[in-house]
Design a protein around this nucleic acid. Sequence first.
DNA 1: GAGTTTGAAACT
DNA 2: CAGTTTCAAACTC
Length: 901
Amino acid sequence: MDSPEIPKIMSNTSPSSDSPPVQESPVFSYISNLSPIQPVKASHAAQGFPGLSSPPLVFTSPRVNTLRETSFLKRPQYPQLSSAEKPKAQDEAKKFVDGPVDSKKHITQLQMGSITDTQDCETNSSSEGVDEYLADPMEMDGTNSAQSVNPCLKESKNSYKSEEPSEQATEDLQGKQTFDAKPVKIKELSHGALPSSERPKVGSRISVDNAFNGEYHHGLHNQSQGFGGEYQDDCDHTRQSPPGRLQIGQVYEDCRENVGGTSKGMIGNMILHAPNKVKNDQGGMHRRCLQFEEAPPCATGKRDSSSKEKVNNSEPPASTAELEIVKVSYAATSKRQMGASLPPLYGGSSPLTVPKPSGIGLHLNSIVNAVPVVRGATTSIRLADHYIGLQVMKSSAVVSHLLLENVRGDTETSIAASSSITQSPHTVEFEHHGSPLEERKSDSQNVDSYKELNQYSSQKKRKRTPSSKDSDGCKRCNCKKTKCLKLYCDCFAAGVYCAETCACQGCFNIPDYEDTVLETRQQIEARNPFAFAPKIVQLEEEIQFTPASARHKRGCNCKKSMCLKKYCECYQANVGCSSGCRCDGCKNVYGRKGDYGPIDHGVTKDMISDKAGKETFDEKLEMVATKKDALSIELYDSHNHTPLTPSIQCSDHTDNVPKSPCLITSYLRSPESDLTVISSYEKSTISSLRNSETSGILLETSKELSDMGYYCWQEDYDNIGIADTFSPRHDAAPTICHITPLSDLCSKASASSTSSRSHWKNASQIQLCPGSQGLSSNSSLRWCSSPLTPMTRLGGTECSPGVDFDHGLSDIMQEEMPEILKDISATNKSVKVSSPNKKRVSPPHNHNHELGASSSGSLRSGRKFILKAVPSFPPLTPCSSSKGSNTIQSTGNLHDKGRKK
DNA sequence: GAGTTTGAAACT
DNA sequence: CAGTTTCAAACTC
Ligand SMILES: [Zn+2]
Ligand SMILES: [Zn+2]
Ligand SMILES: [Zn+2]
Ligand SMILES: [Zn+2]
Ligand SMILES: [Zn+2]
Ligand SMILES: [Zn+2]
């Protein structure tokens, strides 16, 4: 499998990178104009912000529209792609895939809820029909790798196929159709997923999501930073990386391109460009961040190289020609490329370009959801918003990361990434070990092989130290048997792609394998809808953000550590144990099981709320979560920024918290999960709405957001956070998410548009650094900026390693975010108060998830989700970058990616 | 850096 | 849902 897959990938990649071409589109020019590296801030302000920020409020809606358009566009692209690729599709493997794929895709779509979307796409696109679309993807793959090899899709999926090619594929399809509910089938699913991505339907969703994501990233980045050119690269890389993903990613990308081209043309382009540039500029940093966020979409990290090209292509495509280009790219490039390139075939749909977010691919999923809804324009718009938001977030984050990282040395990565980007990542991307998904189920065997391969490729990287954290402070994993597709992997669990710094072997948690990652996520979510929800929630609803109030949703089960070591998740997240904990002899310094406000005690608000009531822990948590998210965010911000608590966090533990990988990436939620989540989200959102002033829109949005999860919170945060308080402390704040952008987007989008809902799901993944879940206190939160001084956050305390990031982010955020946030806030909530701008931020999807996750409670508050934090960890930077860089590196080897090189 | 401990995640 | 196994991190040396 590996081999086959890999080869496939390779083939794909190469093409993709090469093919890409295109770029003519205005965007291109745009980008070119923009220097790749524009100053981050400046760029942010200019690009990012401009679009995002200032526009945001006003813009938001418009953009949204644009975005939507893009999504549509994307769809069209699919067809084109398909057509172009079809030839390849012919490949046997592909055929299988197609068939299966289609079904799978559908399934996936269904799961995602994007099905409609895809259809839309198709319709938009052209004629070809879904099948064709599907075929396209396949073709793509095929082209790239040819049957056996076929890259992307195949890779992951195919790998499977390779094993059992046709039949399996069919089976898979069937299964998928059924839906696969089964996890087992995951592999199949994955296959299906991949296919799905490829497929029009799926693609549509995916594309949408991706687009969003990508756009987000891109957009954000661009806007914020304005590195368009680079950014693209990044995207490309990511995309490229995983063929399988690519398919999906490609789709997304296509969408983006389309969107860009079609919709706004300039704007769209801008966005796209910007993002691209951003990536580039930011280099590693951005990538990291972006990647995460973007990653999914773009494939953030790892595969960037190809993606860039793709991106470029895509951008250009904005115009009609684009389609062709796109096709080409598709064919040539692997999935990723495809995505990137996407072009606007359609135009028709034209849309917007929203950027797909390749990187975020995962997110995309969520997006996808949105798409369906949208179908019409609305959804897309939302998506766009989301993306934008995300991008912004990312960008900011990324930027910060980049900066930080660069400073740190990450620069290398970034640089590398850049360079790598240029390179053709394909090879790397494809490593494909087979689809990760498969691995488990069936593949343990494969896995091994994969591993070997991966390792093989990984070779280099493998990253440095196994230590959990990178220099950056981001966490990184060291997974050896799980391919980073299980919750055992901190990166995966955090919803972020593995970074270069990860020392994992056979890693599939990279943008290249976005499809696989998403599928896997979905499977896991199917089991446990809250699996990716933030683990830490604030107890009280609003208010307090304080860290103190935060708690683990699930609680710990410590038997021997007395919750005094990091073995305890509660302690690790810098939160006290709650009634939900089943620990023995709890001595958690942050608060023992029965106490509520342990440390914080300050939590005042909590108090208010009560923890006492505790009622269900969950509920509280949920509540908290909701708020918490906000809080945490705020807290973080505050911490960071504000003096108030900051110290606390820092002091507490910076370390503790943080480990999470930085990645921002987030995958989105799986459709399924999304759905479920959504519902919950909806609730939450609703509640949030209630709570906050936000407009009614929120509700819808919330749903969508929910998907987004991460993103959503921002709103909440704003509302909540600010509102509440700040309180302080929180030290730990665990995880908060940086993600903001997404949230913002989400919120906005949601607000603006209507239905998209599903989209968000995808977003959820975004993530930040893994470590964070807990939140690191610092970083994550920061964003939010608490009312107090948001900005500060970083400054000082930042205790956690991630901090830099945060800071950077925060700054960025502030600059960039603000607008967005504002928009969001304005729209939604209004944010609360204080926090203005900054905050918004974003957190990440995770939050949403969490909320959702929080099960009961969380759901309600739509916003909540947010909080959770997903993010916490470290935000981004490191991770993402790492991967990104990895990507680059890896690009060479597909494996790498996994490996990171 | 190897080896042990730990508790969550995954699996049955 | 409980019990067991697997896993990777946290911790120890
Ligand atoms: Zn891992
Ligand atoms: Zn990792
Ligand atoms: Zn990994
Ligand atoms: Zn414990
Ligand atoms: Zn506990
Ligand atoms: Zn305890």
